[in-house]
Structure formats: C-alpha cells, structure tokens
C-alpha cells in the first residue's frame, strides 16, 4: 500500500508517516500544496491524506485540481475546521473522507484501510463470521453460540459495521457517522449505550464476549485471545 501525506505541520506529518510505515505502508510526504499536487499527479497512490490549510496551495484546491484531472485516488481530508458545512464542502469537491484534528492515528489508519478496500472489487459476501458469531446478510439473521439473536435494524447495522471491520479499532465518531450517518460529536455516552445494549444481547446467547472496549479509542470486534 502506498500513501501520500500532504501536511505542513512537521510533527503531524512525521506522526502519520511513521505510523503508516509501521503498518507496512510505503509513505511519501509533501509539506505544501504544490508539491503535494505534483506528487499526487505523478505517482500512483492508494490513499492521499490531505491537510486543508497548506502553504502555496490550499488543500481543497489541490483536491479540486486532482479531480479535474480525473485522478480518482481516494483522499482523506484532514482539517482543523469543524462544522457541518466545512465537511460538506470537502466531500462535495471529491474528498472521500473528512477527519477533524485532533485525531487518533488508529482512526486515520482504519479510515485509510476502508478506502483501499473500497477501491478493490469486493466479493459479494453474504455471510460474515467471526468465532461463534455468524451474520447472514440476506436473511438478516444473527446466530451467536448457535442461538438466534433478535436485533433491531440499527443494532444489526452496528454489528455489521463492526464485523466488516473486525480486528480494527473503530472510534465512536466513526460508528456514529457510518451507522447513523450523522456528522457531529454527540458529546454524551450515547454510542456507548447502544454498543452496551448490543453486547448484552449477544452475550446473553452465551459464548465469549466479542465486542471489546478499547479505552480512549473505541471498540473492536475480535476473538479474545
């Protein structure tokens, strides 16, 4: 996997580059918009992480130029600018994801991985399985420890998202964005309450508990070691 990081703040840039390299990615960096656009147009990247406020050429302009040149490399926009309209502005210009600063590295990694997977032809999976948990997407049935678990539609979506990203730490914001499709920080423990409810339903069927809380980061669905 090959990544381009366009970010003018040195600490952030190195933090991102180092993190991705540790996960086996090849990383190129640029500290201004013009160099970023030059690299992005010349090389073939799997994902581009693009800061919004950049010297020489603003991030959104870089993005617009890329898309105008029919370069469809997935772009994650990084920004200190939060707000409904800012986000929409970024996505309208052809951004694939929008992440607000400060962010955790784990979240950025997960988002990048999701984007690379989106790029490849996905096998039409109809059944998601981990350990003793099985989700049938066609009949919308969930079996845990050979017992059928009755889930509400939203709980089903929540579990499906966790299953599709098993072994990845998913932040609360990501869950809220992907499962509910709302883009704001709900501020309360509302996501925790929903996850707790889902976990309780699954656990009542018996077997090992699969949804684990990662403190300070979010949730992960994995087989306990």
């Amino acid at each position: 996997m090959k990544l381009l990081v366009v970010e003018d703040d040195q600490t952030t840039r190195e933090y991102i580059a180092k993190g991705f390299m540790e996960h086996g990615w090849t990383v190129d960096v640029a500290d201004n918009g013009r160099d970023g656009l030059f690299l992005a147009s010349g090389e073939n990247y799997d994902v581009i992480v693009l800061d919004r406020m950049l010297p020489q050429m603003e991030g959104l302009k870089v993005l617009a130029a890329l898309r105008a040149a029919e370069n469809l490399t997935p772009v994650i926009i990084l920004s200190a600018l939060d707000g409904v309209d800012e986000r929409i502005k970024g996505l309208k210009l052809g951004g694939d994801d929008y992440l607000c600063k400060p962010f955790s590295f784990g979240e950025l990694l997960v988002r990048a991985e999701i984007l690379t997977r989106r790029g490849h032809a996905k096998e039409a999976e109809t059944c998601l399985i981990i350990s003793d948990l099985e989700m049938d997407l066609l009949s919308r049935r969930v079996i845990k420890n050979q017992v059928e678990v009755d889930l509400q539609p939203r709980e089903f979506q929540l579990l499906r998202f966790l299953l599709e990203h098993k072994d990845q730490v998913i932040s609360r914001t990501m869950l809220f964005e992907s499962v509910w499709d709302y883009h704001f920080d709900p501020g309360s423990n509302i996501i925790d309450v929903h996850v707790a409810k889902l976990r309780k339903k699954l656990d009542s069927a018996g077997g090992a508990s699969l949804i684990q809380t990662v403190r300070g980061a979010g949730y992960v669905l994995r087989e306990s070691a």
Binding site: D85, E86, I190, H194, K197
Partner: peptide
C-alpha cells in the same frame, strides 16, 4: 459558512432521534 437548506420532514427526523435516544 453556507448551510444547505432542504425540505425536512420533522416527524422522520424526530423518529430517528427517538431511536437514537431510546437506550438512554
């Protein structure tokens, strides 16, 4: 900033709100 204004069905939005808040 420019906010996008569209037709919003408040009963639909409210039912989504209720669904989200239900566990609380």
């Amino acid at each position: 900033g420019d906010l996008e204004f569209v037709q919003c069905d408040l009963s639909k939005i409210t039912s989504e709100v209720i669904e989200l808040a239900e566990p609380l």
